[in-house]
């Protein structure tokens, strides 16, 4: 119960502030490239995205439904908001099932070969964020 209360507290205080701001500053000097981002998203072993998310990706036969459909996500979230969710979705929702793609904070028992590495590099986050921001309108 104590842990649940703590989580509720964090959720109540931290989440709205983080949601409102997102991460306005790019992580890299090189601007995000939407076409590179698309390739990363569709490369399931590399980015894992389509394991859990569906989206306007006709070439992917099996798309997951654990997370929200990415169709039109560029209408729903701004680039800073997308960047924040990619870097560490826990800063929006502490209970999210979405892994932190560019943070090692608080991780437990990480495998030797993955220790102190992130799922995506800073540049990959920028590219994927640029691609997701470009997903406007209804599903293609």
């Amino acid at each position: 119960m104590a842990r649940a209360a703590t989580c509720a507290f964090v959720l109540a205080l931290a989440a709205p502030a983080a949601q409102a701001q997102g991460l306005p500053d790019p992580l890299t000097d090189l601007p995000g490239d939407a076409s590179r981002g698309r390739a990363i998203v569709l490369d399931q072993p590399r980015s894992l995205c389509v394991l859990c998310h569906a989206g306007p990706f006709p070439e992917i036969a099996f798309q997951g439904n654990i997370g929200p459909d990415l169709s039109g996500v560029g209408d729903r979230l701004t680039l800073p908001e997308l960047r924040l969710r990619l870097v560490d979705s826990r800063r929006v929702n502490p209970d999210t099932i979405m892994p932190p793609f560019h943070s090692v904070e608080g991780l437990v028992r990480v495998g030797t070969q993955w220790k102190d590495t992130t799922i995506l590099t800073a540049q990959e986050v920028e590219d994927v964020a640029a691609f997701l921001a470009s997903l406007k309108g209804p599903s293609e």
Partner: peptide
């Protein structure tokens, strides 16, 4: 207990997301 780089506990998938689609696989 959440573990690993993906920060997932057994319960995240096998309780909370059971029946969902992980690409072609039903959890």
């Amino acid at each position: 207990t959440r573990m690993g780089q993906l920060n997932l506990a057994c319960a995240d998938c096998h309780d909370d997301a059971a029946g969902g689609q992980l690409a072609a696989a039903t959890i």
